[in-house]
Structure formats: structure tokens, C-alpha cells
Design a protein around this nucleic acid. Sequence first.
DNA 1: ATCAAATTATTTGTGTTCGAACTATTTAAA
DNA 2: TTTAAATAGTTCGAACACAAATAATTTGAT
Lengths: 173, 173
Amino acid sequence: METDYSSSILLSLRQIIRSIDRHNKQLSSSSNLTIPQLVCLRQLLIDGPRPIGELASSVCLSKATVTGIIDRLENKELVHRDRSTTDRRKVVLSLTEKGASLAKNMPWPLQERFKVSLSSLDSTNIKLIDDTLKNLLEMMEAPAIEIWPYGGEDAVPVDAEIILPGRDTKTKA
Amino acid sequence: METDYSSSILLSLRQIIRSIDRHNKQLSSSSNLTIPQLVCLRQLLIDGPRPIGELASSVCLSKATVTGIIDRLENKELVHRDRSTTDRRKVVLSLTEKGASLAKNMPWPLQERFKVSLSSLDSTNIKLIDDTLKNLLEMMEAPAIEIWPYGGEDAVPVDAEIILPGRDTKTKA
DNA sequence: ATCAAATTATTTGTGTTCGAACTATTTAAA
DNA sequence: TTTAAATAGTTCGAACACAAATAATTTGAT
């Protein structure tokens, strides 16, 4: 008899993400910044001064989104913008002294927590998990399959919620 | 020498979530609804008529958020609100005929894709993944640890971005 | 019966998110 | 050289997301 682990795995995945969200929330309530703001600040500390586009891609957000986040960080005087002299299209972001100091003193409890949890698992299996997830990802990234192929009457899937309500995703509407 | 898989695993996790996001996006562009709207619609199909609070908790969103989503679904005439007769505080949501038909004919490509990818992996390891993720989740849900404990000067963690920029998480600001 | 506390949904305010349209600048091609 | 195409950032609009405050109703304690 085949056991279906995929729903269970997806559920765990989603819950882990929600758990991460909560941790992040905890973190952000200790500073006075939102998570995306902290992420950008941290990335600037790690990478040094960077144009907006580069920051956007290293934090996996659109330029439009980062523009807004930087607006607010600039208001708080944690970051400042400078036009690049070599390419005047670019806007280079740097941490202010205040911003750098804040970013430097930031703990990253989620990461620590995750590492602690992970390291207490059977170490011979950790690599397997890592490999499997990478494998899975690679396959999920594979060429797209057809969408909306059938319109059968009773196609109601019985098993539970797989879709994450996360993120935006507007359509024309 | 100890190899640190935790960063790698977190990265994979994050990328899987992004991949899921993309799939969901594909899906939503085929209907005319956003993901949260689809999720709510689907949940109503599965559960039947429900007050807003119950729907909110089954899709893991706040009542405030669901209120807005339902506003838009009501505009599209896919859902309607009714005051409960037994408890007039409650607003019971039902699918309209149009909404039910749409929800019924909805394919769930992400789930299929994920299942296909997963089933092609070494089947003896699938259960291990499942167990490990559950284990991991359980440990991450364990009692909270201290936040913002130290303020040392050079506490900059060198390794990469772990925090997901996902979701809201406002503070006073 | 009365009234405080709890519950249910909505409103309000701030912030995140992205696509698309727009401006400015640089690059490349004719 | 002159101009078309590509690139960088911003702006705009729509939808999410949630905490806090509010309004309506029910429950529970006295």
C-alpha cells in the first residue's frame, strides 16, 4: 500500500515557514523596524554600499518594493542614497553610522534556533535532507506543466490546503 | 571537520517556498483571482458555509484580512454574507452558484507537481524527510529563547540571508 | 434582571508586495 | 552621429496583512 507523504511534507514545510515568520516577528518587535527593513539593513551591512537593483536581487524582492523600504529607512536616517558618479542611472545605498551600528548589534535568533534544532537531529541524515530538498527544488524548477487542463465536474480535491496564502500575487481583476 | 548544512537547508526551504509562490501565481493568473481569494474560496467549498472567524483560522489569516478578501469575493459575486440567526454577531459565508462552480473546477497544479517530484525521489527516504521536518518543526515550536540578549560590537554573522522577507509584521514604527 | 466581560466582525492606519507605466541615462547599432 | 534599445530607479494602483480601536451582540456573574 502506497503512503502519501507529500501532503504531510507540504504541511510541515508551511508550518516551518510560519514558525520562521513568528520568530522574525519577535525579532522585529525588539527593534523598531519591520522584517523587510531589517533584511535590507543587514544585507547592506554584509555587502557594503550597493545600488538598489543589486540589493533587490540579493534580498529577493522587486526594485519597486525595495524602493519603498529604502524610503522608510531613509526617513529613519539609517540609510542614505547617492547617485553613482560613474553611471548616473544608479542610486547607491549606504548605511549611515546609526544604521550600521543598529545592523551590527542585531542578533539573529531564528538562524541560531534553527541550527540548534537541526544539529540535534541524527547527523547522518542531515546531509540526506539537504540533498533531498535540493533535488526537490531542482525538479520543481523544471519546465512548467499545463495549467487549467481539465474542467471535470467533480474535481474537488479532498485533501487539505496546500497553497500558501503568502505574498501578493495580483492579477488584472 | 563539521559541515554546516543548516544554511543550505534554509536556503532550499526558502527557494521551495518561492517556487510554490510562482506556481500559485501561475494558477491565479488562469482564474481571475488572487491566491488568498482562491484559498478562501476553496476552503469554503471544503468546509461549507462558515462564519468569518472560522474561515480566518482555517486559512491562517486574521479576521481583518479575511474581511477584506471576502469584500472582494462578494463584489465578484462568488460569495455572499448572511447574519447568523442563532448568533447575530456572526456573519456566515456561503459560496454562490458561480463561486461553487469555480471552486469545483479548480485544478491544483502545485500539489500535483510537488507530488510528482517527490514520488520520483528514493522512496525509502521520503518518510525520513517527512519525519525530519516534523521533528524540526516540533523543536522550533519549543519554548522561546531570549531576544536581543547581547550587544557586542562585532556580532555580525557572516553567513547568508536566512530571514524570509515574507509576510507583514509591523511594529509600532 | 442587570451589567460587566467576552466574542464577532468591521474599520482604520501603516507597511509590504508586485506589475506596468514612466523618466532618465547609457549602450549599441545603423 | 544619431537614434533605437536596454537598463536603473521611481511612481502608481490594487491587494494583502495585521494590530488596535470600534460597534454589535451574547454570556456570565451577581
